[in-house]
Amino acid sequence: MIGVTGASGRLGRLVITELLQRLPTDQIVALARTPDKIADLAVRGVTVRRAEYDDPATLAPALAGVERLLLVSGSEVGRRIVQHRNVIEAAVRTGVRFIAYTSILHADRTPLRALAEEHVATEEALRASGLAWTFLRHSWYTENYEDRVRAAAATGELVGATGEARISSATRADYAAAAAVVLTTEGHAGRIYELAGDEAWTMNDLARIVGEVTGRPVTYRNLTPEDYKAYLVQQGTPPAVAEVLAVLEAGIAQDALFDDSHQLSQLIGRPTTPLREAVRSWFATR
C-alpha cells in the first residue's frame, strides 16, 4: 500500500488524485490530522486514517501495512524537525520500506536558510533511518503568487523586492504528478530531485503577463527588502510576518528559486504548467 501524509492539504489531495489514476483504491492510504476533511476519499474506497505529526500515538496505527510513503512536509515552521522525526520513527517501527519527502529546492545551498534548516534536518534523519528514501526538492508553487497577482490586477502595480531574479516555479499539480511517479515506479531510491518549472520568469515578466491576461497594464515596482517590509506593514501585514516575507524576497533575489535542470518535466513526462496558463486560470475561476 502507498500512504500520503497531509492528504487533506492542497498538495496531498492532488497526489491522491494522481494515485487514483494509477492504482486501485484499496492500495491508497490517505493520512490526515482531521480525517473528516477527506471523508469523500473514503466514499471512493480510499483508506482514510488519522495521523497527527505532533501525536506519535496516532502514527504507528496510521502506517500499518503501508510500504511506500509520501511525507509531505509540515506547515508549522519551527516544529517540523520534531514532527517529521515522529513520522520517520513510526515508519521504521511499522515496516515502511520507502519514504519520499517534499523538501526545498537546493536545500543544501539555498540562500533561504530559515526555510531550509528543517528540511536539511529531515533529510539527515531519513539518511540515518535505514529506510530507502527520495528527496523531492521543490521550488516555489506558482500558486504562491495568486493573491499578489489579484492585487496587482486591481491596482496596476506588482510590488516586491526580488529585482530581476529568475523564479522557476511550478504548480502544485506538477509537483503532485512527480510524487505519484516516484511512489508508483522503481528506480528512485537514493535520488535527489531538484524540482522546478521549465520556465524561469522574473517579476517584471509576471507583471507583463498579468497585464496581458487582464487587459489592464501592470508594472513591477522593485523595493529594497527594508522598504518592502515597510510597504507590507502599511498594507496591514503584521510586522513579524512582514519581516519574514522581506527576508524571503531577499533570498529569492539571489536566484534561490532558479533551476534549469528540467528534472520535474523529465520525471512527469510532460512540460510543466506555463506561468501564463496558471495566471489565466486564476481569473477564469472567479
Rank of each mutant, 00 (worst) to 15 (best):
K229I: 02
R97H: 04
Y145T: 08
L158I: 04
Y101T: 01
Y231S: 06
R221P: 01
H106R: 15
T155C: 09
A62L: 08
T122D: 03
W282K: 11
I16N: 03
E117T: 11
P274N: 09
D108L: 14
G187V: 09
W282S: 11
R286F: 02
V279T: 06
R97A: 10
A151V: 02
A90G: 06
A51Y: 07
I167P: 07
R97K: 14
L69C: 13
N86M: 02
A51P: 12
A107M: 06
D26F: 10
P111E: 12
G269F: 02
P274D: 08
P238R: 00
G197N: 08
V233S: 00
A253R: 15
A125C: 05
A153S: 14
E123I: 03
E243N: 01
I38D: 01
P238E: 00
E52W: 01
A179R: 01
A179I: 04
R166A: 13
A173Q: 10
A42R: 15
S168Y: 02
V4G: 03
A91D: 01
T285F: 02
V77L: 14
D260I: 09
T47A: 14
T34V: 12
G187S: 05
A60L: 09
Y101N: 01
D198Q: 14
V66A: 08
T110H: 09
G78L: 07
E212M: 09
S75F: 05
W201A: 03
G6F: 07
E226T: 12
N204G: 14
A107Y: 05
E52M: 10
G215V: 05
Y231P: 07
H106C: 09
I88N: 00
M203I: 01
V159D: 01
R221T: 15
G190H: 06
Y220P: 14
I99K: 05
Q235W: 01
I2L: 04
R49K: 15
Q254P: 00
T202K: 10
T237K: 03
P24G: 02
L41C: 08
L14T: 06
P238V: 02
Q234E: 13
E186L: 14
P238N: 00
A132C: 09
A196I: 13
R85Y: 00
A253D: 04
K37N: 03
